[in-house]
Design a protein around this nucleic acid. Sequence first.
RNA 1: GCGGGCGUGGCGGAAUUGGCAGACGCGCCGGACUCAAAAUCCGGUUCCGAAAGGAGUGUCGGUUCGACCCCGACCGCCCGCACCA
Length: 864
Amino acid sequence: MARYNPKETEPKWRQAWADADAFRAEIDPARPKYYVLEMFPYPSGRLHMGHVRNYALGDVIARFKRARGFSVLHPMGWDAFGLPAENAAMERGVDPRAWTYDNIDRMRAELKQLGLAIDWSREFATCDVEYYGQQQALFLELFDRGLVYRREATVNWDPVDQTVLANEQVVDGRGWRSGAVVEKRKLNQWFFRITDYADQLVDDLATLDRWPDKVRLMQENWIGRSKGLRFTFPFDEPPFAEFAHGIEVYTTRPDTLYGASFVGIAPDHPLADLVAQSDPKAAAFIEKCRHGAVSEAEIETQEKEGYATGLFVTHPFDPDWKLEVWIANFILMDYGAGAIFACPAHDQRDLDFARKYALPVLPVVLPPGEDPATFDVEDEAYVGPGAIYNSGFLDGLDIETAKERAIERVEAQGQGHGATVFRLRDWGVARQRGWGCPVPVVHCEADGVVPLPRSALPVELPKDLEFGKPGNALARHPTWKHTTCPTCGGPATRETDTLDTFVDSSWYFARFTDPTAAEPIDRAAADYWMAVDQYIGGIEHAVLHLLYARFMTKALADAGRLSVREPFAGLFTQGMVTHETYRRQNGDWLEPAQIELTVEGKTRRAKLAETGEPVVIGDVEKMSKSKRNTVAPEEIFDVYGVDAARLFVLSDSPPERDVQWTSGGVQGAWRFVNRVWDEFDSQPPGDVGAAVGPVAGDEAAQGLRVASHKLVKAMTEAIETFRFNSGIARLYEFLNLLKAHPAKGASEGVLVARQEALSAFARLIAPFTPHLAEECWARVGGQGMVVDAPWPAFDPALTADAERILPVQVNGKRRGEITAPAGADAAEVEKIVLDDPEIARRLEGLTIRKVIVVKDRIVNIVAA
RNA sequence: GCGGGCGUGGCGGAAUUGGCAGACGCGCCGGACUCAAAAUCCGGUUCCGAAAGGAGUGUCGGUUCGACCCCGACCGCCCGCACCA
């Protein structure tokens, strides 16, 4: 058997594709367009199996759509700014720019080895000044449109690394890299007004019907829109001039206003501050809250505590009803109004608090079936549906109607209004880092914050930044920040903050449509290519990147730069690549390559290959350096070739689920590659174009032909529905069928059917194993290259069986099968069934009560 | 705590969405080839049973002629959010 040699064939075909410029994306109004994009990589320097899977997935789509006649855009770039480069600089004394571009060179070579159908002419890195200069232009446009602002904000400050950290970079109250306890600091920060788009960002989720429900739900929860009532409780005698009008609160349950027990304010509420000025006990309580829990685990278990201020406000529906004002540790200043009215009977937090301080608990929602005279709330607040009672003008209403009436009444009284509140906050985009996109503004003593004119762009990073120590290399550069004010010409200082790297990735997909345009986005190119038809990446970006990109797209659409309002029409979130973990008895992690596995019965054992020392087989986990359970792609490519590696990561699990890397699995894929090649190699040379000769009367040949047409149909559907693993299983199945109809000694008809089947097969495997496909295609005399060949068609007349084999059940248990014409009606089928001797034997001594026939599917006889 | 998802052979997973459970691959067992091993090829492989047959999709119950699929309760695992009023 001729062994397939990927080391020879794979580079050969990659060169052929490159020579033919096969994957250049062209605007072609005559063809439908398809934009497929995988989330672009951070240039860490090394390709890992996760990349292989991500890009192989996208490549299947790109190649498939291309074969289906689409004009395909499938680009690649680099998310190249960010902390790792600065850390490398600090640890190894290298220049972040050189480090990053070196990594890009290395990873580009590895990615190209994967044989991806990518238009490399569109490649760019976000750290290219040609890119971030355009980003600065977009920043200024957003600034002009009032979507950028600067304010003082509390931030997570890492005192060792001397930078602001994003919330997700704070782990249990400590900086993820330095391990230092993170401080809350007030800093002037740049913000994008993403909250302006909060409503749209929620509403438009409904249009994203090719997104996973899970991601849409996560975004919806993250944005956290709630509708309610914002209103003011007046003081009888205002204690402070600042609160002459009263206390503003926010509630989503205005229907429960008659169940009010007290009014609560956050410990950092301005009113609490005023109270504390003349009340040392209040000051002490507030101080205590400030030093309270930081970590999530602590917050969860923290007891509710409060301090009664001695101040009283008036209930909006009853001037004689006075409610005391408490400072409470469970109220958040930065949500709603930072103050609430408490209804303990119907809110668990309020109830916990009320029980602790012996405050009134007044039920006002009566659960269905409960008696108003006896219903009471003990330790569990009632939050279900019911009828309002004990509530004056709201009595008898359902909850939703009561909410409306209560809001109407409060509005009529001029005390407040219905309001929508979001959990989403504005996007803090400033980072005190040197390796990022500079914010294009200057600070002038006379004119304040001054945005630069377009002519001053790009604001380029200096080449000689010094990254040897923590902190912002840009801020400490001796000369860079000194400049003149574009307004008054006087001395000014450049902004030394750079933009969050999520800004870089919030519009790169639009830049790919014309990466060399003089404008940030070429409108015509974007109008042709956008939106991305299929976006592919990890679930970890479910909110952050995917939300930011949606916001930016809407903002750019409003700025007249894009026509679409959503960037990604289809989203697919793929699973991770995992591997078993191995540990020595002492707990040290071991690499898969050091392990020898044995099987005893059903038990798998592992030992250290070198010494025979027993090894503990641990959980299957995401490949990671720290657990040493990684497998280097280049080593796999070297042994089995790229196609086998691609095939395996696509074949073993559904794409949305994690795939477990196993050496046995990739060997199975390698075996398939060889078996495929062997099959093509055994076929006598023929002409694909002529391979539609008659096979009539040759049952074996006809069977093979029918199977091959069914395969084409199944593969087409499998790819369109992202069920690649099932599709690949069909390829394996069909290969086994080909093996059962070998070319050697085959009839004329079988040879013709084989030729036709092989022609289709070469094209069907092309999205998964493109190099092998070309080699096979050439072997059976295919015209040109597979990349230029159309997707095979199937004949519906052949895929629809004339006869069906129907299983026959008696009382739900399978007792035999019959053959019936396709589409046969119940009476016809029943006759065949009852004539069947095997079925008759099974029915001996039984009385038939009913015969159920499901057309073309199954027969069930109910008998007793 | 709230929200979402998932439980199928020794393992990864199939099952046309209410119609033959276990496709395909891995592993394992047996055989062929070989002096031998590897590779390759052929066959077997849910469990119990010699067979006939029976049981079986986390557990218990329900709907149905028929349930991995739908409903209810429970158990277990995973993910997201986390005092959001």
